[in-house]
């Protein structure tokens, strides 16, 4: 009995000490990690919008480019990122929409950029995804993302949405073999953000 109590006590104290230490470290590093996440998001937006930046640009430089070229604006309930010069009265060159939703294993987050006509896709990037490496994880690969460039966000009948693995069409791209669930979920996320964007745009006009 005494032995068991000692064992439980030992485990409790050791566990508590480890947990306290890790909590301390986690809260100490939290602001740095938040900053890294912000830079990652900014990089994702810049890439989606096709704003020139060097691959080895420092974090501070990326934020500088972002602030100089991108304005955040509200449209309905969502934030859109507008690519325009800071003087900014002229027509925007492109806009980026943030999308987020459940993937197969974890959240998928990223940005969909549209040309000035608000119909043609300019770029697609993912700032966060945890899909199976080599299968669903391929959504982050350039070959998959580049398929979207030049596609439209409406089908022939004018219905908003994108079709992944839906055959031919101005709004259809190839799916990934062996990643059906990831592709279906990504399609649902993109459809959601596109139809909301189109709806809110009509309301705004």
């Amino acid at each position: 009995m005494k032995d068991s109590l000692y064992t439980i006590g030992y485990a409790g104290i050791l566990g508590t000490l480890c947990a306290l230490l890790l909590t301390g470290v986690a809260s100490f590093t939290a602001p740095y990690k938040a900053n890294n996440a912000r830079v990652e998001e900014v990089l994702s937006i810049l890439t989606a919008l096709g704003i020139p930046h060097a691959p080895d640009d420092s974090a501070a430089r990326l934020l500088e480019i972002f602030d100089a070229n991108v304005r955040e604006a509200r449209q309905g309930d969502s934030t859109i990122y507008i690519y325009a010069s800071p003087e900014g009265e002229e027509e925007p060159q492109a806009v980026a929409l943030k999308f987020a939703g459940p993937g197969l294993w974890g959240p998928i987050e990223g940005f969909l950029a549209l040309e000035a006509d608000m119909k043609t896709i300019r770029g697609l990037t993912f700032s966060h995804q945890e899909e199976t490496p080599g299968l669903g994880g391929e959504i982050g690969a350039p070959w998959f993302r580049e398929q979207f460039v030049g596609k439209t966000i409406v089908d022939r009948t004018g219905q908003p949405g994108i079709s992944i693995g839906g055959g031919q069409g101005a709004n259809a791209v190839d799916a990934i073999t062996g990643a059906t669930m990831t592709c279906d979920k990504l399609e649902a996320i993109l459809d959601g953000v596109i139809s909301r964007f189109v709806e809110e745009r009509h309301e705004g006009q």
């Binding site: 890790l22 470290v25 890294n36």
Partner: peptide, 13 residues
């Protein structure tokens, strides 16, 4: 695990 997470957090930050 405590030491590994310490190092991992340091890298992430």
């Amino acid at each position: 695990a405590t030491f590994v997470i310490l190092f991992d957090q340091f890298l992430k930050a």
